[in-house]
Design a protein around this nucleic acid. Sequence first.
DNA 1: TATTGTTATACTCTATAACTATA
DNA 2: TATAGTTATAGAGTATAACAATA
Lengths: 146, 146
Amino acid sequence: MSESDEALHLTATDLRMATFRLARRLRSARAADSMSDTQLAVLAGLRMHGRRTISALAESEHITAPSMSSIVNGLEEQGLVVRIPDEDDRRRVQVEITAAGTEIVAETIRRRDHLLAAMLDRVDFTAEELATLREASALMRRVAER
Amino acid sequence: MSESDEALHLTATDLRMATFRLARRLRSARAADSMSDTQLAVLAGLRMHGRRTISALAESEHITAPSMSSIVNGLEEQGLVVRIPDEDDRRRVQVEITAAGTEIVAETIRRRDHLLAAMLDRVDFTAEELATLREASALMRRVAER
DNA sequence: TATTGTTATACTCTATAACTATA
DNA sequence: TATAGTTATAGAGTATAACAATA
């Protein structure tokens, strides 16, 4: 293994462990304990990208269309999304987030950010260490896009 | 809000987004597609900390004892753990990972590290950027410990 | 015929309540 | 009585197979 390959693998191992541990801690914070990870992910996707069909949502979340149909049923019963018939292709259904759904996502994000900010505060990082974390965040997002 | 509070919250937001996106990508890599996140977490905990009781495992994973009992049933049927009666307190059962269970964890870690190393490679980071990621990994683990 | 979505059915993971065995 | 674990039962999330409506 070359020196640069070794650096790559060492970085990968460190970053994998750190990412899983932090994600696990943050995932516990959410606006409603009854919301599943998938429900939150669907709402967050709709909030970012606007209305989507069942198939598109299923593909985004890597689950099947019947599973997504069932998830959307649950969200619709809670008033967090609405199904809108597609006028151009009447086989399709557009799923749209409601104001209540948007608020659930926003509140979950607020709680996670507050939790993480409090965790960062307790460690008492220097300005330089905080800067390193922000630089790394940008790098991590570039990695995750690939 | 003070300047340092603002830095804390900006860092928290960046890091939350980056962490969730990367964790989500990496979680899909595992030694067996049939293994659930909880099953993997239990195996990984047993591999690190040695034999544990059902109650201790349930507490670690933040699930109830009946749920953990069921998870352990599944792992035992697959030959990945064994139940060992506790001689000192015969109400207790010690759960121990088998060689096959250890291998599942090791293989999952290998796959995730290889996936992440390949992702890092595709972005073509400089040595300095890789160093930033490794420094940040250490900082993230300190944060997650709190 | 092919595509979009739903319904039917089954399995896993989770919970709470009730039970057994042991302390 | 209290604790450790299991069993019984139910609800949510997932899958595959079969179906209905539309293109």
